[in-house]
Design a protein around this nucleic acid. Sequence first.
DNA 1: TTTTCTTCTTAACCAAGATTAAGTTTTTTG
DNA 2: CAAAAAACTTAATCTTGGTTAAGAAGAAAA
Lengths: 209, 209
Amino acid sequence: MLIFVLLNLKLYLSEMTYGLLLQSIAKHISITEADEQYIVSLLSYKKIKRKQFLFREGDVHKHAVFVTSGCLRSYSIDKNGFEHILQFAPPGWWIGDMQSMIKQEPGMLYIDAVDDTEIILIQKTDLQDIYAAIPKMERFFRILAENALATYQHRLIDNLSLPAIERYQNFCRQYPSLTEILPQKQVAAYIGVTPEFLSKMLGKAAAKK
Amino acid sequence: MLIFVLLNLKLYLSEMTYGLLLQSIAKHISITEADEQYIVSLLSYKKIKRKQFLFREGDVHKHAVFVTSGCLRSYSIDKNGFEHILQFAPPGWWIGDMQSMIKQEPGMLYIDAVDDTEIILIQKTDLQDIYAAIPKMERFFRILAENALATYQHRLIDNLSLPAIERYQNFCRQYPSLTEILPQKQVAAYIGVTPEFLSKMLGKAAAKK
DNA sequence: TTTTCTTCTTAACCAAGATTAAGTTTTTTG
DNA sequence: CAAAAAACTTAATCTTGGTTAAGAAGAAAA
């Protein structure tokens, strides 16, 4: 009886922790419960406090990272010490330096927590095993990469063709929940302007009304 | 005897036409000859003359496009009529509007030929069949998408953090063969400056020496 | 609570890159 | 080959956005 309760508890905790990832997989492919359990057996879980680092420039990314609560960000620091944000990762998103992940070479990105955050990690080597054991997972990550690719294509075009104010408006439209939470400074580092200029821009826009 | 010659001829032509694509696949996964033949049976071939369009803004991308000779480019045109180049595709590269390809909705990109170009086309619906028949192909396209993703991440960081002159130098280092062939105007549209400014910049750099 | 750190704002000045325009060279096409 | 169309250059002027600096306001930490 006690064992039964403990088993249920374990399942329940696992469901809490890994539910979001399994749901995300289920959205694109269907896998058996045995497959799910196999995958879960290779996952690890981690908490990251606000402002704590997950990766620094020069680290080799040996894990795929999936956010289940809170929010991470990836960014580079240029030679003048300014941050340029590549991506925010709210719950349900993956984050990482693909170049480093693929080639297993030192990355150029920093990743830290915008907020207290919980993540799921998969080791790159385990991911290879998952592909071998459950070929359908190749499809899941193909679809994931293709979607991310579409997002980056769009963002690059925006950066090439739109003035700062429109890039800001696009950001607010695309990530309304982030706009509320993030300090302005970080939105500026994402759209590619200085915090001073963003402030000036918003002041002007407000004055017009 | 005649039939034998014709068969060989057909194989030879097919090798000429589809060789680069099959090689590219073989670099990442190994498939049987039967699989190769199946894939080839779903491919089509097309020549595109310099300056001819393959897609325009608003078109739905129903094919994946692989370049075997020449060079294509994808770009958007902003409200002032200026071109912003997302990608060049020399031989061995894929090109397309991922957003449009995935969601089968009108795209925002133009694709035309920088030079007389030969391409291989795969219909999106046939691609689904290929995935079903040869699951390994999911891996091939996963790897492809992941590599492209890494490239876009890098380019976006560069655009956010580097001044125009360094973006130009990066372009020359990364695509030396393109730098020779392309009109300066198009390099400008890729790195995100006006042709006038690129000209001024290069004049200054030359004067220094 | 008080102190400290971070963020936000404002403003004056500065610089990278855009715009306009005109002339020159190169490439394409009839 | 001549004519037309692109592409390249140069220069003057303008604009977007950066830099510097300093104070105000919030948030975090002690």
